[in-house]
Every structure is written in structure tokens, then in C-alpha cells.
């Protein structure tokens, strides 16, 4: 018999709440709760740390949810939120802002880059009103390669800005303010739309034609899921750069525990993505020199994933 854990979601939710509290209280600023200057503490906790924690929460949850949907949609375990060129487009937009505008409007440029590259891929792969996922995947790779050539060129010519671009590309939350958090609040709204389609995603795991036989309007479903996931990814990229690993591995890890039913898998992935990124960011900012959070996620997550793979045969 197969176990489908009912308790997993509440447990993850509690872990997330506890994580928010603990990580908000941890930091390298030298201040601790023993300090008496309450105004200072308040400013540090609510103006610096809390937005960072909430940003990591929203972005991590969004990326994991988008990755989960992309893997289901493409029926491909290697799919992640960046699979159709979203990250390269975002990076190119951000690099342009850094090099040409001195970093001004960088989130906006990153969003435009991410959205524009995805829409390009979508238009390329649409034929006779239908969109084949295989074509989508390949045109995603082609567009990515083209954009990354442009990105390399800009980086090569960027001189002093190179470090800044590199840092941005690896992703991080050092720049998180309440404005960014407010923007990132669009992510959970979008995840709700994804969740509405979780039963459709289950049926689409049988293959597109089977899904049509079962009454799924596959063209419309694909379009909506793709656009919403891309929207989530573009926002994530614009506020925190290209954080890898979360969107690829978290859905896999959760699938081990929940099975493939997206009605549980999707919220579980979202919660787990939030937890992972909150802690990864806490580690990133607690080190002597702040390093990009993407390095931490991969550094911690990959060995854990390998451990799970070895322990359980079923992924």
C-alpha cells in the first residue's frame, strides 16, 4: 500500500511559522534581545530582518510551486521554473540596468527581460493554435542560448560592474525592503491560481492526448499554467535574482513524501520551498562575508537530495 501523509501539510506549516520567528531573531549585527535600546531592535527586526525573511518565504514558495507545475506540465523531472528561458531573460534585463543605468530600475528590467523571453519562446512554439510541449522545451533552450550569448557579451564589456552582475545572477535577499515584499505578495496570489489547476495537472501526467480524452481543455490549461508560472518566476527573479535549485529539487523531495498528486504536492512544495530559502538566507547573511543564497541552497540541498535518493528508490 502507498502512504499519502495527511499530516505533512500542517507539520510543514508549523515548521514554517517557527522558522519565521527564529530566523528573524538571528543575525550578525551584534544586536541581541539583551540590548536595551528597544527602538533600535524594533528598527532592525522590522525594517531589515523581517522583510528579508518574508521575501525569502515568498520567493522560495513561488519558485518551488512554479517548478512543481513546470515538471508536471512538461512531464519531465528535469524541468524547473527557468526551463523556458525565464532566468536568462531576467539576468539580461538586470545586466542591462546595471551596465547602462547604474542599477536603476533593476527589478523592473529583470521582470521585463524574464517576461519577454518567455513570451518569445511561447510565440515561437505555437503552431496552428496548438503548442507542443516538446517544441516549447527546445525553443526555450534555443532562446536561452541566444540570450546568454548577449548576456556574456554585456558582461565581457561591463568592466567594473561584472562582480555586481555575477552576484545578482546567483541571487540573494540583501536588498529586500518592504516595497519588494509588497511586490512579492503577488506570488501567493498567483500560486492560488496554480492550485486551482492541480487536478488538471494530475490528469495531464497521463499525457496530453489522454488528458483531452478525460475532458481537460489542454491548450487553455497549458497557456494559463505557463503564463502564471512565468509571472511568478519573473517576479522572483526581479526581486532576488536567479536563485537556483529550489524550483528543481524541492518538488522532487516533496514528491517522495506526498506522491505525485498535485493537490498535496503543490502546497507541500510551496511550504518546503519557503522553509528552505528562509534558512538558506539566514545562513547566507550569518557568514563572515555575505554570499549569494543560491550557493547555500545548492550546498545544503544537493547532499540532502542525494541522501533521499539513496534511501528511497521511488522519486
Amino acid at each position: 500500500m502507498i502512504r499519502r501523509p495527511v499530516l505533512l501539510l500542517p507539520v510543514l506549516f508549523v515548521v514554517l511559522l517557527v522558522s519565521i520567528v527564529i530566523t528573524t531573531l538571528i543575525g550578525v549585527s551584534g544586536l541581541s534581545l539583551l540590548t536595551f535600546d528597544s527602538e533600535m531592535i524594533q528598527k532592525l527586526l522590522f525594517e531589515v530582518r523581517l522583510p528579508r525573511v518574508l521575501g525569502a518565504l515568498l520567493v522560495g514558495g513561488g519558485l518551488a510551486a512554479a517548478g512543481c507545475v513546470m515538471q508536471g506540465l512538461f512531464r519531465n523531472p528535469m524541468a524547473d521554473p527557468y526551463i523556458i528561458g525565464t532566468s536568462t531573460g531576467g539576468a539580461l534585463g538586470a545586466a542591462c540596468a546595471i551596465v547602462f543605468l547604474g542599477g536603476l530600475l533593476m527589478p523592473l528590467f529583470a521582470f521585463i527581460g524574464a517576461a519577454a523571453s518567455t513570451i518569445t519562446v511561447y510565440i515561437i512554439s505555437k503552431r496552428n493554435g496548438r503548442m507542443a510541449v516538446e517544441t516549447l522545451l527546445l525553443s526555450g533552450i534555443a532562446v536561452s542560448l541566444f540570450l546568454s550569448a548577449m548576456l556574456s557579451f554585456i558582461m565581457y564589456m561591463s568592466g567594473n560592474s561584472l562582480h555586481q552582475i555575477m552576484f545578482w545572477m546567483m541571487g540573494g535577499f540583501w536588498n529586500m525592503y518592504w516595497d519588494d515584499v509588497r511586490l512579492a505578495l503577488l506570488i501567493p496570489a498567483a500560486v492560488i491560481i496554480l492550485y486551482v489547476f492541480s487536478r488538471d495537472l494530475n490528469v495531464m501526467a497521463l499525457g496530453e492526448e489522454e488528458a483531452i480524452h478525460l475532458g481537460v481543455n489542454t491548450e487553455r490549461t497549458k497557456k494559463i499554467l505557463l503564463l502564471v508560472s512565468t509571472f511568478i518566476t519573473a517576479i522572483a527573479v526581479s526581486v532576488s535574482g536567479c536563485i537556483g535549485f529550489v524550483g528543481l529539487i524541492i518538488p522532487h523531495i516533496m514528491r517522495i513524501f506526498t506522491g505525485p498528486d498535485h493537490r498535496i504536492l503543490l502546497p507541500a512544495s510551496m511550504l518546503a520551498g519557503s522553509i528552505l530559502l528562509i534558512w538558506a538566507d539566514t545562513v547566507a547573511r550569518s557568514l563572515p562575508i555575505e554570499i549569494p543564497v543560491g550557493i547555500i541552497t545548492a550546498f545544503l540541498g544537493a547532499p540532502f537530495f542525494i541522501y533521499l535518493l539513496r534511501r528511497r528508490t521511488r522519486v
Binding site: I2, G72, N76, N202, V203, A205, L206, G207, P260, D261
Partner: peptide
């Protein structure tokens, strides 16, 4: 039919209610 993810037989059959 090649099913992409390891659904249980009951879950597959219930998809017929979609």
C-alpha cells in the same frame, strides 16, 4: 500509456471522474 509520475491505481481510476 506512459504515466509520467507514480500514481496509485486507485488515483488513476479516479481520474475518470474528472
Amino acid at each position: 500509456t506512459d504515466v509520467a509520475f507514480p500514481f496509485s491505481v486507485r488515483e488513476i481510476v479516479l481520474m475518470g471522474r474528472y
